[in-house]
Design a protein around this nucleic acid. Structure first.
Lengths: 224, 224
DNA sequence: TCATATTGATAGTATTACTACTATTTTTGC
DNA sequence: GCAAAAATAGTAGTAATACTATCAATATGA
């Protein structure tokens, strides 16, 4: 992994947190162990009380960083998409051939995170599992329109847009580039879930990861 | 709508409920107003206590029908997919041309429900909105493998399989028919959501519904 | 060292998600 | 038309959740 990536700070909309968890040791511990605990318990069973016990702190201290666990999930998933975006931009920046560029982008957007890059307090392998299992809960709420206006989903939308542009660069005649980019991002999460829990609903498995399916889709759908 | 469809009873795995809500007046009211209330409040804010107040019954009476609100959601969404399956089978049964058959199936699977068929106590227009907003919460849980073994998602899987077979009938060489069927079902729900809340992430709107996108995808992806 | 920020500790509230038990009403089967 | 059974309502209670508020202790830094 590029050294630049090791030092990057993902910038996240400040209204998602009350106090920047990157700004203190406690904040980082909340994030580090929050990720582990959400993965272990599932987001529905996760509470700040349990997390507080885990890190030997208190509920009230955690509430100083995040209003509630929903905002905490938005924070974690925003961080994840920001991290993915950096990876995607870095890896595709110097590729000139549009097809090759798009394929690389899809590889990065849809592959499972397999190594903890460990450049910071965040375990991306586990965070990736959380995104697969919980991301949609962050927007399938009654508050989605307000939160969208506040910019809570801006990073994801920016990433989706980058892929949309790459699709149009490959085939300017393709009429649904935004939809296709959305399908690739959201449906690849879904396919990782299917692979793990509903294997009869997909051909994907450890030998044939979802990225193969999506690359095949792109290569056979777009005209270039 | 076919008269047969007006009298059908969707059969739902008995371990999803404690007492069949179709078997009594109270049971039907729970379902009828449960659908309305989940749509109004969102599933997260919905409680049996609120529903009880709404139908002038008691929490304890509702608990006689469903163990908890999660099982209630599974019941409602199973009913929805069973209903969709009937529609799909009826509408495609007498079509012999595989391409025409598949396109019809996709039309039915991905279109928004626009009229309340009113053949019973269930408002399918509202139930469709619930499925768009809440379906994934029914399986994105820590209990998914156990519940899958119990057959809680059997109807959805059967529907997905029907579409998979139709895809293979159109193009036996296509290597990912199960994945593509899953994409069509799950991603069409997602696209309806995008259209309503993240319009920049899709070309779909009222003039261009998600069904157009998916039909175009099929026609340009499969070889026939 | 004084002020400020940070964290910890404790307590308290309203709501949620139930369980248990009893009482009453309705249905049905003879 | 009556008794038994089934269905529903009513009440109460518990543990956990999702917070808010207040104050004390400690560390930091100017």
């Amino acid at each position: 992994m590029d050294a630049l990536l090791k030092n990057l700070k993902i910038s996240i909309n400040e209204s998602i947190f009350l106090k920047d968890p990157e700004s203190s040791d406690l904040g980082k511990r909340i994030v580090t162990y929050g990720i582990i605990l959400i993965n272990d318990l599932g987001f529905d069973n996760f509470t700040f009380k349990k997390l507080a016990a885990h890190i030997e702190s208190t509920e009230s201290s955690i509430y100083r960083y995040f209003e509630n666990k929903h905002k905490f999930l938005i924070y974690l998933t925003s961080w994840y998409w920001g991290w993915k975006e950096y990876q995607l931009v870095f890896a595709t920046n110097n590729i000139t051939d549009p097809v090759e560029k798009l394929l690389k982008a899809i590889e990065i957007a849809t592959r499972e995170v397999e190594e903890d890059q460990s450049f910071n307090h965040i375990n991306e392998v586990i965070l990736n599992k959380i995104v697969i299992n919980e991301y949609s809960k962050s927007y399938l709420t009654k508050e989605v329109d307000d939160e969208n206006k506040e910019g809570y989903f801006a990073i994801y939308k920016r990433l989706s847009n980058r892929i949309r542009k790459m699709i149009s660069d490959v085939d300017p005649t393709y009429p649904y580039p935004a939809s296709l980019a959305s399908t690739i991002l959201a449906d690849s999460l879904h396919h990782h879930f299917l692979k793990n829990h509903f294997s009869s609903l997909t051909e994907c498995d450890d030998q044939t990861p979802p990225s193969h399916y999506f690359k095949h889709l792109i290569l056979n759908l777009l005209k270039f």
